[in-house]
Nucleic acid binder design. Structure first.
Ligand SMILES: [Zn+2]
Ligand SMILES: [Zn+2]
Ligand SMILES: [Zn+2]
Ligand SMILES: [Zn+2]
Lengths: 135, 135
DNA sequence: ATTGACTCTCTAGCGACTATAGGGTTTATG
DNA sequence: CATAAACCCTATAGTCGCTAGAGAGTCAAT
């Protein structure tokens, strides 16, 4: 049942340093220690960290995850903050998507300016980068 | 013709600190100094920094920009490295786009799990985040 | 002479870790 | 039982591309 940090790391797929970092940032409760000062975890710790990992995979920041975890400890309050966080995050992702799509298009256009191996002084990409004034 | 760093900053739209940072990272040549130890720039500096700014707007890293600038100083070599950099960068952007699109879809699906303000213990979002095991 | 606007260097901070150094602990093997 | 391998500890520095600040110096105008 009990395990040390290495086992927890392989059970969760997180790195040992990441787990210690989450502890320092107060996303996970301070674990107990063995006689040799090793951190001791159990199955609850695994679930807790898998929750965090899943949120990180969705791109949530540690502060956002912290807020979700806080709400989880107050099961009788409303979950409006949760909806708020997800909605905000969706908006951020949408904005970033739009930016990246524009970028992609500009890069594609730029790439067509050079056929293959020309002399650098004749390279259409360099010319374009040097001449274009603003996006 | 000559100008100090503040003027250069407003001519290029970059911050003063960014310009000094580019100098430190050797993306721009060490500028001359006035008697009072102020950096002195000219029109060439403006073009140089606008080039950098344009590349940054395309998401290129400072190292990539450094490589482009190096090629520009060797006008008789081939521009194959330039194509290489752009191609690599397009690939990075494409990968990131795919990731973000998946993320967006997962977030959208997650958001539908909660109607509006329920009690936190009944919130479908929290439940989903806690139960889903892997992406 | 004193303000104010500008500039200088140096340092710390952001986010979310990773990597290293220099130790201590536990476990397995001979 | 001794030793080596594997594991763990803390503390610190580094990543990237800047931003923000402290504390000092310079230059123009009033
Ligand atoms: Zn967010
Ligand atoms: Zn070319
Ligand atoms: Zn790139
Ligand atoms: Zn809810």
């Amino acid at each position: 049942m009990n395990m040390k940090i290495g086992t927890l790391a392989s059970h969760t797929g997180l790195s040992i340093q990441a787990i210690r970092y989450y502890e320092q940032q107060e996303l996970v409760p301070t674990p107990g220690r063995s006689s040799g000062n090793y951190r001791i975890y159990d199955e609850t710790s695994v679930k807790h960290l898998v929750f965090i990992k899943h949120c990180r995979n969705l791109g949530l920041s540690l502060e956002e995850i912290k807020a979700l975890l806080r709400v989880r400890t107050k099961p009788d309050e409303t979950c409006s903050e949760i909806n708020h966080i997800i909605d905000h995050h969706v908006a951020v992702v949408d904005r970033r998507l739009t930016e990246l799509q524009e970028l992609r298009q500009q890069l594609g256009a730029l790439r067509t300016k050079c056929g293959e191996n020309q002399a650098a002084k004749d390279c259409g990409i360099l010319r374009e980068l040097f001449e274009i004034t603003s996006p």
